[in-house]
Nucleic acid binder design. Structure first.
Lengths: 345, 345
DNA sequence: CTGAAAGCGCTAACAA
DNA sequence: TTGTTAGCGCTTTCAG
């Protein structure tokens, strides 16, 4: 006999108890639970009443076992604690709630090796689909996912090899717009601090910056392009380097807001006033950016929307059993606050 | 016949296929999978070889259904995107990995109503236990959890009604130490910005601050106690108010680091130098605090440790089937960086 | 040490 | 519209 090690905390009421109490067969109870149309409304009401009265909740494992669906999706992320990912997850959560899915979280903590391992684990877990945020080396397992027809969506990954479903933002255009805005303010000496250059989004932002400069015939000065890594500290250090130059820029464009915060701190520490002495612009528009003083002008990335869009795509794929393809880029837009200032030409 | 809607992406290999291939009964395969000692090592090897060769992975739902365990724990959090919670989760993740559990995430987004609903959902999901971080109104469902003998651990909740398992930090002592440190530096005019006062940790920090003042016969000035809410903005505003007073403090103790960042920004904007003109101290020691300039002196809260400890407690409870009780407070300690300065008495 | 077999709680065909 | 029933894939007794 099975079930010797009874799960002592799960409710022990089963569909059979409900059926007995309601005076119907347990198949009928199942129909009520699944909103099958083939139930007399009178019966349905009676069964529903019994269900609530007894506090019955269906056993998810049993349902999944027979239906082949778990109503759980997996979410693979590099790390938590960055506002950036938090906001994407907010969007995912939102959609998942309406679609009645739960979320299983897998954090790689930037250990690449874990990614591939997790994918096997995910599939094994009976998760119905997976969202991958900022994956490090998807090439290792994307083929597997595709060959299994396992639904997945990539978020914020601009790999060259990518043919599958993915959602990102218009990084190039966002950076282009920000740079153009600075130029419109009269700036010609515009410095740029890059993100981690192994990431597609960082590359695109750099390209956007350069393109805007070129369009307006502003020459690109390599001394004003500093390599950063999206962390606050490199923004700080980068700004110090920039400001120490004899030929210093009048504006600094940081590839993300965290680095822009570092820039702000550095600049302040050197006694340089924002935005009078120097203009600063960021990228992402995380919550904190509206809270700094002065408020950070930045490129808004629709993070929550990205999460929602990715989830919608995934839900659709899961119900249709087909892997869609094509990547989607959601529009960024400039949010003008108080960290940039007009310059006399 | 069931299974009309086949889960087209899950591997279709079952324990039976493995058994046939290995020339044993499928009960034996099951024993191998569960590391049962009653298998001849020769047989075990053969079966294992077949398992890896066929790439077989057990169906989790089937296993859970019969064993009554899911090897998944639920994590209920108010929000993401705060470094604070991210660091706790890192600890949880770490322990979960060694204990071979997966993590189901439920975010309430600070909507109180969702908490209670989630608890039912969690239990229904067949999750083996639950960790609640910073729960808003646990009174609503703690009784239910207890009566079901459902394993749970509270993290960072200092409710008065609490008898169940919980882990937190020494908030009182941390605040006491920080205040005493400021006093040892010669400060007598020490302001305090509180957290959300509906949270126990915020109350304890305030008490610790007051107690240190009293111990050293420094009178408490109500004008120097400002109510905040743990968000950066209230730190900014609070500092402005403080600095504008005719009788201004020489040090500001913010109840958490985010507010301390706000204080730093405000102070800088008013042309006041840190730490020469004013000393600033925070609480939490989130990652960002070591990145500001000057580095923020703060009370280190062992967030990752708290996550690990909570998880260990939960795992133990799940295996023993008993709810432990008693709360645990992990020690805080002062991290001295560069935001505080000696003052001439 | 191994095989046989009884279910775990439920969904979905099939009858009626 | 409802009842009946065959499994989903697996764990765990019970025999041997």
């Amino acid at each position: 006999m099975a079930k010797s090690q009874e799960n002592n905390h799960s409710s022990t009421i089963t569909i059979i108890d409900v059926a007995r109490e309601a005076g119907v067969s347990y198949g009928t109870v199942s129909r009520v639970m699944n909103d099958s149309p083939n139930v007399k409304s009178e019966t349905r009401e009676r069964v529903k009443e019994v269900i609530t009265r007894m506090g019955f909740v269906g056993n998810r494992n049993a349902r999944s076992l027979v239906s082949g669906r778990s109503n759980v999706i997996g979410l693979l992320i590099p790390d938590l604690g960055t506002a950036y990912i938090g906001e994407i997850i907010r969007g995912i959560d939102y959609e998942l709630e309406t679609a009645k899915y739960n979320l299983m979280l897998y954090t790689t903590h930037r250990r690449e090796t874990k990614e591939t391992g997790y994918i096997s684990s995910l599939i094994q877990s009976g998760v119905d689909g997976v969202i991958l945020i900022l994956p490090r080396n998807p090439a290792n397992y994307l083929d597997k996912l595709r060959s299994l027809k396992y639904p997945y969506v990539l978020v914020d990954h601009q790999g060259i090899d990518e043919q599958g479903p993915a959602v990102g933002a218009t990084n190039f255009k966002g950076a282009f717009d920000a740079t153009e805005y600075l130029i419109s303010l009269g700036h010609k000496k515009i410095a740029f601090i890059t993100g981690s250059m192994d990431l597609g989004c960082a590359q695109e932002r750099l390209s956007g910056y350069k393109a805007a400069l070129e369009k307006h015939n502003v020459s690109i000065n390599q001394d004003w392009i500093i390599e950063g890594d999206f962390e606050q500290a490199t923004g700080y250090v980068g700004a110090k380097v920039l400001i120490s130059q004899s030929n210093k820029p009048t504006a600094i464009f940081a590839s993300n807001d965290m680095m822009a915060f570092g820039v702000m701190n550095a600049v302040r520490d050197m006694g340089v006033k924002i935005p009078i002495d120097i203009s600063i612009i960021g990228f992402d528009d995380i919550f904190q950016s509206s809270q700094t003083m002065p408020g950070l002008t930045t490129v808004h990335q629709p993070l929550e929307q990205m999460g929602r869009k990715a989830t919608k795509m995934l839900v659709e794929m899961m119900s249709e059993g087909e892997i869609q393809s094509g990547k989607i880029e959601l529009p960024t837009h400039l949010v003008i606050r108080d960290s940039c200032h007009k310059i006399e030409g």
